[in-house]
Design a protein around this nucleic acid. Structure first.
Lengths: 346, 346
DNA sequence: CCCCGGTTTGACAACGTTGTCCACACTCTA
DNA sequence: TAGAGTGTGGACAACGTTGTCAAACCGGGG
């Protein structure tokens, strides 16, 4: 059994402090601070002595104390929805890049798509006094951030707008992208096109559905409401719905998948079928080019989105004035084969 | 131009402090602290008044100050190699789960496979006084962490052992997994099997190569050194090497891919070829089951690895004694088709 | 030798929180 | 009614750092 002596005093497992360094180097406390922060006004000889003491003791500045004193932390938080989603890799990397360029540390956390967790995480980061926050919302209501924003925490929402408050947001052109994707199917002769999307109250899902309707309307193709399926994007429901759309006397000849998870499930369903069914998905998927046929998708530029959000954030931090801004970024249709299949016989 | 008045005082953009709350509620400072921390010894009426003041002012405790005072931060850092790698999603989630169970916040950062960045990030997290660190090493030398570990920062390495220091580590059975994968190919009649892996000084790469050699030796199959290719796993080199192995008078009839990136590139190369070539990859890949044939892989259990590492970490934090420990976790062969192709004709 | 400019250095107070300790206001009992 | 006991509240110091400011030092010119 370990002798778990409850540490009586703080002192971080006895880490050396500037005071210790100062004592060892035989200089004043402030001189150590100056050396650590590369402030001017220290002779080379003094600096050498101080550095020697620092190395000998393994001293590392306590940033908590520094933050407490200075008021700024030079760090920003990024709250992702789901670390496993390949969409967020490049996004996070782009944000980190910009943060680095501004000398800030990026801390990221994942809400695991749980609104409560998003809230906890955001508030925990605020309690640590991050200077800013990039949030990919999991929840619908962000009023809990109001005091934080009022207190000066720069906040930018990504992928979906904030709920209940006015705040900066960087979004993809969801409606436009979906319209383009559906128009692509229409251009290849399809008239009966199914739409499988996420829950209708989710902003991106609603927007994409809107794009679908617009494209159909523009082409003068009537929409049978039974072709539209909105709901949770778990594999079971999506597979069942896709199967439903593809059966019956008048099955759809093409599918538009409302996000990458739907696309993957749809692919699995289609793989088991004889007749080819056209498919266009929103969001790129990994290995989309390796499948036969390749998967045609409407892709978002995750890196651009991340960079834009981060630029907006640091703009605010540098005192940019003005009211909250919504930036909408274009999507790109990537043609790989599955979207160009002609309607099945009959 | 924004009126960038340089903030004269800290005070975090004028956030309310406990003092402000106390003044507004007409109570003492410590009473507010007690309410905020749910400490006993406050009447319901007083608590109500305090909570009211907290809500009215939008007060949020300053954790920097708290940390400074208490000495522990209840947070651990996770340094990933590459956020975009699907392997790390479940791993990070597992670590977070365990951290949550221990009431700790998980902060994760990405080294982007850059040793210098790994170092910066690790030290930045230490400067913020995280209680512990889970590191997926990008670099080879971790002596820079020695003072931190000595000062009590619990540290666990994942996927590869630490370089230059003794520390806890959680690894997959790389040699065993590779041996199993190669044996699988041998069992399906292959004798000439190519191995395309990462740089030889990378621990996992070396171990997997060792497994390959062991399996070949066990089966009495001689290894032609021209079948082994170790180096950077960028697409160009891997594609070129795969092509080389598959050409010439005596081409290999099967490939073993040393990691998921190699697998993906190999798949692209094989997709352009007429004759089927068997393939087994180390690491699972997304959609591996959707391709035709499905991709047979040696999979690591990322969630288990993450959980194990986190358990080890919190064990240390709770005062577990003893010397650094290395845990080796088993891999699992997932049979999907590509590894069961028979050797091409001749 | 003294005083002057500039440079280098250190003492000290703050930042916002929590732990320690003591004071007060009750209640209950003798 | 006094005294002990209990339950509540607040004053104060400390955590490790940085900003302010003044002291000490140096060389050179009077």
């Amino acid at each position: 059994m370990a002798q778990t002596v409850r540490r009586p005093a703080p002192r971080y497992g006895n880490r050396p402090t500037m005071k210790d360094v100062a004592a060892r180097a035989g200089v004043g406390l402030k001189t150590v601070s100056r050396v650590v922060n590369s402030e001017p006004g220290v002779t080379v000889e003094t600096e050498r002595r101080v550095r020697e003491a620092i190395d000998a003791l393994g001293f590392r500045r306590n940033d908590s104390a520094r933050v407490l004193r200075k008021g700024r932390t030079a760090s920003v938080g990024l709250i992702l929805e789901d670390l496993a989603d390949p969409f967020y890799g490049p996004l996070s990397r782009a944000v980190e890049e910009v943060a680095r360029a501004h000398g800030a540390l990026l801390i990221n956390g994942s809400s695991a798509e749980d609104p409560e967790r998003e809230r906890e995480l955001a508030l925990a980061l605020c309690a640590r006094r991050v200077d800013g926050l990039v949030v990919i919302p999991a929840g619908e209501d962000h009023r809990y951030l109001e005091p934080e924003i009022a207190a000066g925490v720069a906040t930018v929402f990504v992928d979906r707008p904030a709920g209940g408050i006015e705040a900066d947001a960087v979004l993809s052109d969801n409606a436009g992208g979906a319209r383009e994707g559906v128009a692509h199917l229409l251009a290849h002769g399809h008239r009966r096109i199914g739409f499988v999307g996420d829950l209708p109250h989710i902003h991106t899902a609603a927007e994409r559905l809107r794009g679908y309707r617009e494209a159909m309307a523009e082409a003068g193709a009537p929409v049978d409401e039974r072709w539209v399926s909105m709901g949770p994007t778990g594999a079971e429901r999506v597979a069942a719905e896709a199967a439903r759309l593809l059966s019956g006397p008048e099955p759809v000849t093409a599918l538009f998948a409302g996000n990458n998870r739907v696309t993957v499930t749809a692919l699995r369903v289609l793989a088991d079928r004889e007749e080819p069914v056209a498919l266009v998905g929103f969001d790129d998927i990994e290995l989309g080019d390796l499948l036969r046929p390749g998967v045609t998708v409407v892709a978002q530029d995750a890196a651009l989105i991340g960079r834009t959000a981060a630029d907006l954030l640091f703009g605010r931090l540098e005192g940019e004035p003005a009211r909250p801004r919504q930036v909408k970024l274009p999507t790109r249709l990537i043609v790989r084969g599955s979207g160009e299949l002609p309607p099945a016989g009959r």
